[in-house]
Amino acid sequence: MLVPTSYFVILSAVLFTIGATGVLFRKNAIILFMSVELMLNAANLALVAFSREFGTLDGQIFVFFVMTVAAAEVAIGLALIVTIFRNRASIDVDDIHSLKG
C-alpha cells in the first residue's frame, strides 16, 4: 500500500517548524543557516509528495531548482561566514553588536 500524501506533508510541516524554531532559537550563524536548509528540505519533501499525488513532474522540477538555489546560497553564506570570521573570530549573531537592534 502506498503511503498517503498527507503523511508526507505532515512530516514536512513538522520538519519545517523545527527548522523555523531553530532559526529563532539558535544563535550560532552556521546552525541558524543549517536550520534554514532544513526548512528548504521540508518544502522539497512536500513538493515531491504533491508531485506524486498529482502525477506531474512539476514538483520535482521545482525541487531541482530549489536545490540549485540552495547550493548557490550556501556558497555565498559560507563565504560571508568565513569573511566575518577572519575579521573577528566569532560567528555568534549576538556578538555582532556593532549594529544595534
Binding site: 527548522g19 543557516f33 518544502a43 504533491f50
Partner: peptide, 17 residues
C-alpha cells in the same frame, strides 16, 4: 533572506499541493 526564501518555497509547495 534565506529564511524568507524558505517560507516562500514552503508556501509555493502548499499552493502547489
Amino acid at each position: 533572506g534565506a529564511f524568507a526564501s524558505a517560507f516562500l518555497v514552503y508556501g509555493i509547495a502548499l499552493v502547489f499541493g
